[in-house]
Design a protein around this nucleic acid. Structure first.
Lengths: 124, 124
DNA sequence: GCATTTCGCTTAACATGTCAATTATTTTAC
DNA sequence: GTAAAATAATTGACATGTTAAGCGAAATGC
């Protein structure tokens, strides 16, 4: 995924932080456990990234009103801008990957990984 | 790969160190660059692990006689023992995975990952 | 109601991932 | 031959992965 990292390096973003912002952009405000599942991150890593992203003004954290254990994370304006700013080249990179690797191969790979992942989370 | 980590935790080994030892066991003494490729590790990570593995007496490092830049890594007796000690349950875990995930799926997944990896290393 | 358990998140400690810079050695070019 | 480029490994700095422990809040059992 080198092309992605190059693209993101310009904004000082890691792949992981990028995933967090994208999840928030697609789903809207979420609690942290949900983010960690959607972005394939463990909670301790996510906590650190959110602290950093919050300091950079890309997201906001606020306590849930009905369950005060939960923290609701919201994409801030600067975060929306970042997503918009990179979406074009992101799509282009994806299209290139589909082109060189093959759309079928890519789909098959994602399906297999998904199936394997479901196995692992169900076992035990 | 939780079952693997459980197995290895008894010996205080991480998955990565286990991969390093297995590569050495299968191929024999190697220089570090070759190990890093075979075990999918970057050199800085490998350097640290080898320092740790050497301290535990599982491997040895010696300078190559013809090219003194190279360090030849050799599996030590204790390393061979560790490999032997875990090979049985390792095979069992693999067999279980093939069983629950499907041998065809597993093979397909590995092929796809291999193909993707070759793309990435060739590009530029 | 209250103790116990569970849940959501954080913190701490350490291993590993990652990039950049450095050192020592070897190759290459001239 | 010698300077410049390339190579093998190390080091440093920082982000992330991973496990275990801890904290406050909510749910559960009695």
């Amino acid at each position: 995924m080198a092309p992605f990292r190059e693209m993101l390096a310009q904004s000082g973003l890691s792949e992981q932080k990028w995933r967090v912002l994208r999840v928030l952009s697609e789903t809207g405000p979420m609690e942290q456990t949900a983010i960690s599942e959607a972005a394939c991150l463990l909670l301790p890593s996510l906590t650190r990234m959110l602290t950093s992203l919050e300091k950079d003004g890309l997201i906001r954290r606020s306590a849930d009103t009905t369950d005060r254990r939960k923290m609701i994370v919201t994409l801030d304006d600067a975060g929306h801008q970042l997503i918009a700013q990179h979406s074009e080249s992101s799509n282009r990179i994806m299209a290139e990957l589909e082109d060189t690797f093959g759309a079928e191969n890519l789909e098959q790979l994602l399906d297999l990984l998904d199936a394997l992942n479901k196995l692992k989370t169900n076992e035990k």
